[in-house]
């Protein structure tokens, strides 16, 4: 089973990378961009066949390792 997770910075946490990428895009002439926030994307391939169990496991991984819950949120976006 393959689980996809997106990790993003929490809403009010400063994202220096996103900010600078935004400025660079402006500089290159891409108009009308309001904000850029950068995150991380993981694809986790497990032996687990039960979707619910697989999700729970990945959720635990997010809490314990993948995300830094002090500043980041995680979101499981896909299981297949």
């Amino acid at each position: 089973m393959k689980i996809s997770v997106i990790i993003t910075l929490k809403k009010d946490v400063l994202d220096p990378q996103g900010k600078v990428i935004h400025q660079a895009l402006d500089g290159m002439g891409f108009d009308g961009v309001n904000e850029v926030r950068q995150g991380k994307y993981f694809e986790i391939n497990t032996n687990e066949t039960n979707a619910k169990k697989a999700k729970d496991k990945v959720e635990e991984m997010c809490k314990k390792l993948l995300a830094n819950l002090v500043i980041e949120n995680y979101k499981i976006i896909d299981t297949q």
Partner: peptide, 14 residues
């Protein structure tokens, strides 16, 4: 939830 105190993030580039 969204207004919880947030950790200061450093931006050495700035």
């Amino acid at each position: 939830e969204e207004k919880k105190p947030t950790v200061q993030v450093g931006d050495p580039f700035t």
